[in-house]
Amino acid sequence: MKIEWAPVGVPMERRRQTFAMAFLILTFMILSFGSYFFVAAVLFYGSLWWRTLMVIYLVYVYANHRRTHSIMDGNGWKISRNNWLFRHYRDYFPVQLVKTAELPPNKNYILASFPHGILGTGISINMGLDISKWLKLFPQVRPKVATLDQNFLTPVVRGLLRSWGLVSVSKDALVYLLTKSNDPKHKDNRDGFTSNAVAILVGGAQEALDSHPGKYILTLKNRKGFVKMAIRTGSSIVPTFSFGEVDILDQVANPPNSPVRRFQDFVKRITGISPLIPVGRGIFNYSFGFLPNRRRIVQVVGAPIDVVQSDQPEAAYVDKIHNQVIADLEKMFAKYKDQYIPNSKQDKLIIH
């Protein structure tokens, strides 16, 4: 394979963006796996003092998660969600945010977000790592991103996730956030924000398995849990689509029923996580590596779909709202694909 090396004369700004990308990905990879090795090393080889501290810490993590769902109220630490590093991370692609309708801060929202892609980058940046653009477009609405519950039991990493505004996608955590008061005088809203918007990557691990450049394949037809949650909590559903999300990384070929896909499906059934093998670019080359490619991502936030609150959602009403979400996503894709996808005539939206 011929290697395409990055030219020597790359502008310094682009070099800084590449550094930010490499730093964040390497740091998160090391912390994700290294935290478990660190805990094991302390428990097996540490002194009695260090073992005791580690056990106390692990008990605290478990107990705190059971009690609070590991949710950090408010917008968390602003410096961890709006800084030099994350702005360069955004500009690497770049990632954009497009508003098509108002989100009044007098109610809470579920952002039904598609597609998942490999990393869920558009949502993660706009509503997690660099929320400056979100706060300008949607004032008084707190952005939150829902992720797997087990991520908040990972030592060290849980602290980073919480500081970035990530929350558990568990039922209890979502109910807690989506039933928060919208009264400006309520003690929980002293920060000036009166609404919570929780982004859920509905397709999840299954949709990630179908992610390949140019292929917009959504896992949605049998995913109705987010609709039921919206009805139970009286939250409006906001369809949102990240154009370009699937183009930043490819993955090893895994067509349905192939040995690779069967192995991935097996691991997903056991752990809930898809063992993807991403294919991207390197730090100094464009041919192979673990970094995403520079492709523009545009997250388009649609109009809210209001629901009638009910503790026991009727199946027919769930189907009605679910069908409206699908229809809105199809309209959004048709309306904006020519504007935000290069060679859009070759791209089709497939909903499974």
Rank of each mutant, 00 (worst) to 15 (best):
P313E: 07
K335G: 02
H69W: 13
T271C: 07
P139C: 07
F37R: 08
K224Y: 02
G282L: 11
Y286C: 04
L97S: 06
P239T: 11
V301P: 10
L58Y: 10
D91Y: 04
V267I: 15
V198Q: 02
Y36G: 06
V202G: 04
S163H: 02
N343D: 14
I118H: 11
N257Y: 05
S195Y: 00
F114A: 13
G225Y: 10
A173E: 02
R232P: 00
I131K: 03
N75T: 15
T121M: 14
K107F: 00
I351D: 11
E245R: 03
R281C: 07
I273A: 07
S258L: 05
L249F: 15
M12K: 13
L276S: 08
I270D: 08
Q17S: 05
Y45V: 12
R296I: 08
E207A: 04
G244S: 11
D347H: 14
S258D: 09
L53V: 08
P213V: 06
R90W: 04
P105L: 00
K2G: 05
F138T: 01
L119V: 14
D306L: 10
T179E: 14
R158G: 01
F114D: 04
K107Q: 15
M332Y: 11
F19C: 08
I56S: 11
F28D: 06
Y317K: 12
A41E: 08
A205C: 04
R90C: 11
A205P: 01
N75P: 06
K171A: 11
I25K: 09
T18D: 08
N257Q: 12
I297Q: 07
D311N: 14
S32D: 07
I277L: 14
L148P: 00
G192C: 05
L148D: 09
A101L: 06
T240R: 01
V95H: 04
K320W: 04
V157K: 01
R16A: 06
V298P: 03
A327L: 08
V260P: 04
G46E: 07
F193V: 03
Y340H: 14
P259Y: 12
K180Y: 01
W5R: 13
D347M: 13
T100F: 03
R262C: 07
N293L: 11
D265H: 05
F226Q: 02
V175G: 03
E13Y: 15
G117W: 02
G203I: 02
G46P: 00
F138W: 04
Y60D: 09
G272I: 07
Q309G: 04
L160N: 03
G165Y: 01
P342E: 14
Y340D: 10
K185G: 07
Q17A: 02
A63N: 09
F263S: 06
K320C: 09
I79D: 10
V260W: 03
I56G: 12
V267D: 13
I326Y: 00
F138H: 03
S80F: 15
I270C: 09
A230V: 09
H212L: 10
P7L: 06
M127S: 10
V8H: 08
W5D: 09
Y36H: 13
Y62E: 12
N196E: 15
L31S: 10
V8G: 07
V141W: 00
Q299S: 14
D338V: 02
P155Y: 00
V260S: 06
V95A: 10
L153E: 08
L209F: 04
P255I: 07
K348G: 03
I231G: 03
R232N: 12
Q96A: 13
S211A: 15
V145P: 01
A197L: 08
K335V: 08
Q324I: 09
H212T: 13
S236V: 04
N323Y: 00
